[in-house]
Design a protein around this nucleic acid. Structure first.
Length: 429
RNA sequence: GUGGUUGUGGCGAAGUGGUUAACGCACCGGAUUGUGGCUCCGGCAUUCGGGGGUUCAAGUCCCCUCAAUCACCCCA
């Protein structure tokens, strides 16, 4: 072949796409229940939005963006995440002039130039929510509860909520200094990346996966000890509400999120197996982002989950999603004489709202029956020379082999009747 | 970006330098001349991810390249 798909992208084939539909519908329904509305944002934005919004010390901005220049010499970037775009849209469309907080969700592809692995792709899909314009702890708790319910409601096991507060600029300044003091004696023992993090963003060292750094970080002061009074009260209230709602969580003082805009509440959700791709959802509060990109000083909070990782986890945990039926009626025409009637009948049945399939290659009846069986058709209509002569069709009910000959004119209404009878039987069972 | 493993029909998978590249599933056809799921029979890769090299001879050895996967990293 001429060429293959670029590295790190995927085709989602018909055999699998129904799972995506299932999960997407589930998420949209849940979003509606929690009071979120869809906001569709562009797939690319001006590069500076991500540089300023996400923060140019983050790895995502530093080395993972798909940035290109368009024909008008503008620097554009394929969105690596959704929050910056939603924030931009919120400000640009002056959504702050409506009822606050605004509650939005989005679903769609994101792009990061990473080295691909299972559950990590260069084009991947996220579902995410943002609540903008409210600082109340109940908003944080609601976001965490929503995220938890997504996985809990799908029947996943070992769903863990890791919760932390990363403080506000006020308390973070004090904490940052204390952390640097603690780590300074061991500075040259840290891994290379962490040495550069020491000045730029020492809190990221807490999150380092290198064993050695992990050990050095043990006994380091924790942000929780340095939270200012406001942040502490906020965090306490968030936890209190979560407990009241029955949402299980574990405070993880080493949890630091990789995007620079996070403040106060930060959380991640893992499910099932340990490993590098165990985090299926992450989010937190970003009280300065809206102002940072030139909007009013409004706080926000949100999370995003990786659709591929969610599907992968469902698979690993053996969840049986119900594959929807794809065919109500199969029309089997025999021989060239049946062609016209077959086409007419298929069309009428389809206009009446039924899902109809047929053969186009003049296969024998046996082969067509096999095909009907494969697509799980509930009814097969058979049209041969005998039937054409009598302007009739045979209606066969696949489940029990029952057959009736009916006139062509009655075919559509007869089939509909039969199908609803089959459906009622199924419902009773 | 670093390191490891892998790459044979649509899928899974044998093949330890020497003739026509096993087998299973799927698919197509027949037994059953107009009736699915079971059974039996038959068909289905001029070629082993791609390119180059060594050799009388390469799916098998060497080099390069692409891709998948795992760990690191990062994050969803």
């Amino acid at each position: 072949m001429l060429t293959t798909k670029p590295r790190g992208v995927n085709d989602i084939l018909p055999d699998e796409v129904w799972k995506w539909h299932y999960v997407e519908n589930y998420l949209r329904d849940l979003a509606g229940r929690f009071g979120f509305q869809e906001l569709r944002i562009p797939i690319f934005e001006h590069t500076e939005l991500f540089q300023r919004g996400i923060g140019d010390t983050s790895d995502v901005v530093e080395k993972e963006m798909y940035t290109f220049t368009d024909r008008g010499d503008r620097s554009l970037t394929l969105r690596p995440e959704g929050t910056a775009g939603v924030a931009r849209s919120f400000v640009e469309n002056k959504l702050y002039s409506g009822t606050l907080p605004g509650k939005y969700y989005y679903v769609g592809p994101m792009f990061r130039y990473d080295r691909p692995q299972a559950g990590r792709y260069r084009q991947f899909n996220q579902f995410g929510i943002e609540t903008i314009g409210g600082h109340e702890p109940a908003i944080d708790s609601e976001a965490v509860a929503f995220a938890y319910e997504i996985f809990h409601g799908l029947g996943l096991e070992n769903v863990l909520v890791h919760l932390n507060s990363v403080g506000c600029p006020v308390c973070r300044k004090a904490y940052r200094a204390a952390l640097q003091d603690h780590l300074r004696p061991a500075l040259h023992d840290l891994c290379e990346t962490c040495q550069t993090r020491f000045d730029r963003n020492p809190m990221r060292i807490l999150d380092c996966k290198s064993k050695h750094c992990h050990e050095l970080v043990q006994g380091a002061p924790s942000i929780t000890q340095y939270l200012c009074e406001d942040c502490q009260n906020h965090f306490d209230q968030v936890k209190k509400i979560l407990e009241a709602m029955g949402i299980p969580y574990a405070v993880d003082q080493n949890l630091v999120r990789g995007l620079d805009y996070y403040t106060r509440t930060a959380f991640e959700i893992t499910a099932g197996k340990e490993g590098s791709q165990s985090a299926i959802c992450g989010g937190g509060r970003y009280d300065n982002l809206i102002e940072e990109i030139g909007g009013p000083a409004l706080p926000g909070i949100g999370f995003a989950l990786g659709m591929e990782r969610l599907l992968l986890t469902l698979e690993q945990q053996g969840s049986q999603l119900q594959k929807p039926d794809s065919c109500d009626v199969f029309v089997a025409g025999l021989g060239g004489n049946a062609e016209i009637l077959t086409s007419q009948l298929c069309h009428s049945l389809r206009l009446s709202g039924l899902r109809v399939q047929r053969d186009y290659q003049g296969k024998g009846l046996k082969a067509q029956m096999k095909a009907a069986d494969r697509v799980a058709a509930k009814i097969v209509l058979i049209i041969g020379d005998d039937e054409i002569a009598r302007q009739a069709v045979i209606c066969r009910q696949m489940a029990n082999g029952e057959q009736t000959t009916i006139s062509v004119n009655d075919a559509v209404s007869y089939v509909q009747q039969k199908l609803s009878a089959i459906k009622v039987e199924g419902d009773i069972k």
